[in-house]
Design a protein around this nucleic acid. Structure first.
Length: 569
RNA sequence: CGGGACGUGGCGCAGUUUGGCAGCGCGCAGCGUUCGGGACGCUGAGGUCGCGGGUUCAAAUCCCGCCGUCCCGACCA
């Protein structure tokens, strides 16, 4: 490719709308252009990098035995209602109607499409396992798109779906995908961690996220200082130390706490520590009231509740809910709740007592509340938000919080979709059984941004050679020097001949502009041919990532560039 | 959805407080000089000042409404 012909209008100044490095640089280096919030156009350079990521993904998926298909983006809404995800996704779905008024949606993921597809031909157990994947654009009307490609409303995703006969098969398919994912992210050059995670709106049991470590990451993870545990913050289970000493049980006493609704206020009013207050939060789970109890210094991880009740939508009570259930907002406690309210408590509540908690009466709390004497707990579950300093569930070590960008997520779904969609195969004994499914996602467009986030410097992007839009740039430094142009052309052609993805900067621009653009775009290797070098019979080879330069004899410039490239990261 | 900021040639911004010829830098076009780290000079093109309404002799500027973009937050009782 000749840069004089390439559509790559680079920007000298930072676009006003871009805050994070990846977004800023992808815009400046002409990889993408904004269209509307959360949706971008992809320019030639961006498309080349994305295609290279795609190719890596495709190769590893194919090598792992998965087969590529293509599912529609425009989907009927009905199967989504069957699985309950129509309500669960809610406004996150791009919804539309066709001319007959039929409800449709733009696919945010494709379980509802692929499952009937496989079940439709009523396969035999002999046909299993099957793993189908596609690379296609996905649509999610995010409540707050941000950071360019990192959280867009339209994004390119590889999604795969495995169908197995039994749980053992599902676990094997899962392992195969997990291994393929590691190879993919390794080849892309990403620095990443694999963590236990929350299944979110996909649902299911065992699942892992592949997180690219990055300061601007929206996703938090915790890691044990001893290195034996790592998990998504939303999934991490803190080790709960039970107090050894049982304190004397206090009598239950109602106290007047006017205006002290929040935990902070109650604790201050009664001169107690926040940890002595029992926080009682009300949730609506698909129309049913659920009270959730955690210590007053703790917060509730809604993702954990969603997982517990999947696929029923979980939301906190609004004003109307409090009125409808006759509850005093700010003064709710587990004692004296109306019948039919399920009471769920975190493990941290177990074994402690003498709580200060709401009295279910405006402006009143109780002290000395103990279970089971004063209130019941229907279920103990892990529901708290983990935080730095919590104990590792494996060895009690200290947990620390890190930031990352989720680039891949794999799930063991079991029969979460095959059951409601009645997706079955015929087993050996002639019976129809639901598939044991898995699903596996990779954000292709997000990988491009995540790599940009990990690999850049003040001058621009520093792509790993595997996914750089071009591997090498031949820069003709003196546009008025015919010799430089000829040598540049020669080296460019030789590189291309050798299978190197190269460009030649033959633009009518000054050397400074060409150098700056080459650094900005981030070609892993630059070859500079100019009057100065030609005078002494040399060209320069520069490795972008390290900044390392060397003078090489003009005649050996091509092979020197090839060598530099093979040595480059 | 709540809060905040912003919206002025392709990009980055000033001008709005105090209404009075629409500006600057970069980029773009032409000519000339330059030519190894974002060159210089001269000439030039390019703007419904986000949109709609209102006030006024006069609105980028004041008032009302809407739209868009970005940032922060989102029920913690």
């Amino acid at each position: 490719m000749r840069l004089s012909k390439l559509f790559a209008p680079t920007l000298r100044e930072n676009p006003a709308e871009a805050e994070v490095p990846s977004h800023r640089l992808l815009l400046r280096a002409a990889f993408i252009r904004p269209v509307v919030s959360g949706i971008s156009a992809t320019l030639p350079l961006g498309l080349r990098t994305m295609r290279k990521v795609e190719r890596i993904v495709r190769e590893e998926m194919d090598a792992s035995g998965a087969q590529e298909i293509r599912l529609p983006i425009t989907l009927p809404a009905d199967p989504w209602k069957t699985t309950g995800r129509y309500g669960l996704y809610g406004d996150l779905l791009f919804k539309l109607r066709d001319r007959h008024g039929r409800e449709m949606l733009l696919g945010p993921t494709q379980e509802e499409a692929v499952t009937p597809l496989v079940a439709g031909d009523r396969p035999s157990y002999r046909d299993l396992p099957v793993n189908l994947y596609q690379i296609e654009w996905k649509y999610r009307d995010e409540f707050r798109p941000r950071f360019g490609l990192l959280r867009g409303r339209e994004f390119l995703m590889k999604d795969a779906y495995s169908f197995d006969r039994d749980e053992g098969g599902m676990a094997r398919s899962y392992q195969v995908m997990s291994a393929a994912y590691r190879r993919i992210f390794d080849r892309c050059g990403l620095r990443y961690v694999v963590v236990e995670a929350e299944p979110g709106q996909i649902g299911g049991g065992i699942n892992h996220e592949f997180m690219a470590v990055a300061e601007v990451g929206e996703d938090l993870f915790v890691e044990c200082a001893d290195g034996d545990y790592i998990a998504d913050m939303k999934a991490a289970r803190p080790l709960v130390l039970q107090p050894d000493v049982r304190v004397e049980t206090e009598p239950l006493t109602e106290v007047h706490t006017p205006g002290a609704a929040a935990v902070e206020a109650v604790a201050a009013f009664l001169s107690r520590d926040r940890t002595e207050v029992l926080k009682c939060m009300m949730f609506d789970v698909d129309g049913r009231p659920v009270a959730v109890l955690v210590p007053g210094d703790r917060e509730i991880e809604e993702a954990k509740l969603e997982r517990l009740f999947f696929p029923k939508p979980v939301r906190t009570f609004d004003e109307e809910d409090f009125v409808a259930h006759g509850l005093a907002k700010g003064y709710v406690g587990p004692r004296g709740l109306p019948d039919g309210v399920q009471i769920l408590a975190d493990h941290m509540v177990r074994g402690k007592g003498n709580w200060v908690t709401g009295a279910n009466r405006p402006d009143h709390h109780v002290t000395g509340a103990n279970t089971p004497r004063d209130f019941r707990v229907d279920l103990y579950e892990d529901v708290v938000v983990i935080r730095s300093g919590d104990r590792c569930p494996n060895d009690g070590g200290e947990l620390r919080v890190g930031r990352s960008i989720v680039v891949g997520h794999i799930y063991q779904l079991g029969t979460k979709y095959s059951d409601p969609l009645k997706a079955t195969f015929v087993d050996e004994d002639g019976s129809e059984r639901p598939f044991e499914m898995g699903c596996y996602g990779i954000g292709i467009s997000r990988i491009m941004a995540a790599v940009a986030e990990q690999y850049h410097d003040d001058a621009g992007l520093t792509w790993p050679k595997a996914i750089a839009p071009f591997q090498a740039a031949v820069i003709v430094a003196n546009r008025d020097d015919e010799r430089a142009s000829l040598e540049g052309e020669r080296i460019y052609e030789e590189l291309t001949e050798l299978g190197v993805d190269a460009v030649v900067d033959d633009r009518d621009e000054t050397a400074g502009v060409k150098f700056a653009d080459a650094d900005l775009v981030g070609y892993p290797v630059q070859v500079v041919v100019g009057r100065k070098g030609i005078g002494r019979g040399t060209a320069d080879v520069k490795v972008r990532r390290t900044g390392e330069r060397s003078h090489v004899p003009l005649g050996e410039a091509t092979s020197a560039a090839v060598n530099a490239l093979s040595a480059a990261p």
